[in-house]
Design a protein around this nucleic acid. Structure first.
Lengths: 337, 337
DNA sequence: TTGTAAGCGTTATCAA
DNA sequence: TTGATAACGCTTACAA
């Protein structure tokens, strides 16, 4: 059932059917109705490949996700969901490419096979080959997260440095003098993963500014590691009275550690972090945190991408979000010595 | 950079380039090398749309996921990840369609626009319109989960009825006489969601067989609901000594409820369930559970789908998995009265 | 208001 | 062993 079949049954030419569908040329109302009737009857839809070939665009966006072997965090999942939803809203499909470091087959297929009109890249590293590759291919793209020197690229990110600094300031205002940062995994830090680096930088700077004592711990992205990390902290730095964290996946473990150690939060220990609202509210007591707006970020990423596709020449734009810290129940005055 | 460009630079015809690439016709070694050199130099890949148009297949699989607004559970995410990975392994791309109930735009686009060679459907209901739709479209598909009467369709599923029954038997063997089932949400049960129904059936049957007292509770797929559900259970049925559950998303909440109530597991209360290994091992104490092999299921689903695509006439196949219950630390003898 | 025909980049048939 | 060419299904410039 191709367009010719519709044309035949409606007694018109193929172009008339095409125009009736696209509306790019006036078609007599009666003719249009007859065509529509036939289409409804046999359920015709233009063949996507033929259309893509002719139009030179696929009406598909590529979404590059971390490879399946690595567990996606809840935040990453939030991005995927929101990107897919935003794309669907614009009548665009999403092609998934699980690609890790440099060039992966599915990534290459997507790029050089011209399977997509644009790409959303997540889990960006400070130096990222995929960005270079996309640049060279001349394919519009937007990154969630940003490289060390995102010259001409459009991106959207959360300002981890500022958010962590704000957490530190908030805790310092409450009288805390010894604060720990529970960062993401050592591997990510080593691989030059932006958020981990920037959290580090924001923490160091704020601690310095306020004349505090700062302790930094790297922690895998899972509950078990969180629990272990908390225990280690209690053991090695028993005088720390406040924690700030950007590792949401470790939160359940941190909580378990707190409960097992019988530590009163926020009486004896305050915690403030950066996490999706879902995690912050799931924490007991509810976590004072900057809520990462994953849904909005995905939607905005698609928005930026559509802009770049529409006008590739336009200057790159970026959005650096600093969501406010939602004051919940996990932070309070430092305990008296 | 199309195939013509390669042909020109290599001094051969377009068909020779095509054959050199596909190997469907012998090409002189020297010629082949020259062509490959040019391709490597300018990084050519066949245009996917043109190839799809000509070949009548897209080398793309569709994956229908629950709409983004609904949070995906960890298990669902596991399926997505494993399907994408398995597809990538077969050099196939995956197109995502977030589609809820009946016909969604992106779902329709995928089907009637012939954007994919086959479809993997998840979150199947006992009566599922999407299955009917795919059947009518004559598009090969495989479902993760199965409908009430999966006549000619290929599917893969976990045998919830048997697994829940096994949990009940295990608990009964340990001397428990009053057992609760924490099922999935009331909405899912009402919507005719298979796993919830089958868990119910398996539970009822096993309880009857062993002459036990069974209590069934429906619970939303999130920690808060799990906690509430546990409290409700303690209040209304204080004599229950064992729980079996298929609601992995509720596990962290159940755990919190246990800890808050100061209940000793497995001393005073045993728990056995069906959950991804990840969740079972994250539970404290580690959960005795049938581990849902999400990774394997995604891979097998793709395998079945490729079979159906290759030989659409072949009889439908299905795989009903009953992974063994991994004995961990959350089940023990019923407390003496 | 509608029809004719070219062309998008491949693959595959038919000739050489 | 290779080349010319038709065809896949669509959109759109050009004609009528």
């Amino acid at each position: 059932m191709d367009i010719g079949e519709i044309a035949r049954r409606a007694g018109v030419s193929r172009s008339t059917v095409s125009y009736a569908l696209s509306g790019r040329r006036p078609v007599r109302a009666e003719t249009k109705q007859r065509i529509q009737a036939v289409i409804d009857e046999i359920g015709y839809r233009p063949n996507a490949a033929a259309r893509a070939l002719k139009e030179g665009r696929t009406r598909t966006l590529g979404l590059v996700i971390p490879p399946a072997s690595l567990r996606l965090t809840d935040m990453q999942l939030g991005f995927v969901a929101s990107v897919v939803e935003a794309a669907a809203h614009a009548d665009l499909d999403v092609l998934l490419s699980p690609s890790g470091g440099d060039h992966d087959r599915s990534f290459e297929r997507m790029i050089s096979g011209r399977r997509v009109d644009g790409v959303v890249l997540m889990e960006i590293r400070l130096e990222d080959e995929r960005v270079t590759r996309l640049d060279r291919a001349g394919l519009p793209f937007v990154t969630i997260g940003h490289t060390a020197h995102p010259r001409g690229t459009s991106w959207i990110d959360v300002d981890y440095a500022t958010l962590v600094a704000r957490c530190v300031h908030h805790l310092a205002d409450l009288g805390h003098r010894r604060i720990a940062l529970i960062n993401r995994s050592p591997e990510l830090v080593a691989a030059g993963y932006g958020p981990a680096h920037r959290a580090q930088a924001g923490f160091a700077e704020a601690v310095r500014r306020r004349g505090l004592t700062g302790v930094e711990l790297a922690c895998q992205d899972d509950p078990a590691a969180g629990e272990e990390c908390f225990e280690q902290l209690r053991e090695r730095h028993p005088d720390v009275t406040a924690i700030t964290t950007v590792n949401e996946a470790a939160l359940p473990g941190i909580q378990r550690g707190i409960e097992r150690a019988g530590v009163d939060v926020p009486g004896a220990m305050s915690i403030a972090g950066v996490a999706a609202r879902h995690w912050a509210e799931g924490f007991r007591p509810q976590l004072t945190a900057a809520d990462v707006p994953t849904l909005e970020m995905g939607a905005r990423a698609v928005e930026l991408l559509l802009e770049r596709i529409a006008t590739p020449g336009a200057p790159a734009r970026h959005l650096l979000l600093t969501p406010p810290i939602s004051l919940r129940d996990s932070t309070g005055p430092a305990p008296a010595r």
